[in-house]
Amino acid sequence: MVKLKNINKIFNINTINENHVLKNINLEVNKGDFITIIGSNGAGKSTLFNAISGNQPLTSGEIFLNSNNITFVKEHLRSKYIGRIFQNPLLGTAGKMTLEDNMIITRSKGFKKLKISLNNKIRNEFKEKLKILDMDLENRLKDNVGQFSGGQRQALTLLMMVLSNPELVLLDEHTAALDPRNAQKVLDLTAKFIDEYSLTAMMITHNMEHAIKYGNRLLMMDKGEIILDISGQEKSNLTVEELIQKFHDIRSENFINDETLLS
């Protein structure tokens, strides 16, 4: 359903700071895949998501979604079918606006009309949906989202994104900025939604256990390349030790020293 063909991303091309961040990446994401992605800091994971979401143009290569070439489609148009959540919980919602106003904006994608949609019927719909989160947000429709915790905001972003029926979901370490309890809660919700709504998703994580536990397929990135692509039975049998060993075999570097991956 998503196909990346010979993708290259080079920052500061033809300068002394030239940085070849994505190196000829080829990847096919199948419908229903839940892919976890690991890799050390600077491996190019977020850049890969920027490429898929259209946040940054490619240096070369092509991107297809359901066999449509979307390489040159603008980010805001891609977001109608690609949902993305960032590590920073503030990026998903407008903190200075109330919860109900936020939900009006995320209720439907695309340009907004000059009409007032918010009424009590819609409010009740919102409350029903918010109950799924089990965070008591259904009673705080008139509070500014800025008063919510990072975990609540991220759960909210997740809920609103899921309800928009995205064809592809990109999660970029979306629990990394949360405290452990909230991180677990958001992660549980993530897995639940992806399963219940049969979403196709890619999730970057720095936690190898999570990468193994969640999803049906695991990618490991290093220095701009996908160096490992495991799925099915092989993935579910994987252990953290084996994962480190595999990296070691491929890169013949000592993975254990890479603290960012083990943190």
Binding site: E75, H76, S79, K80, F86, G92, T106, G110, F111, M161
Partner: peptide, 9 residues
């Protein structure tokens, strides 16, 4: 970013 994510220019 939220506006972009919601499909608006």
């Amino acid at each position: 970013q939220m506006i972009i994510s919601q499909g608006m220019n």
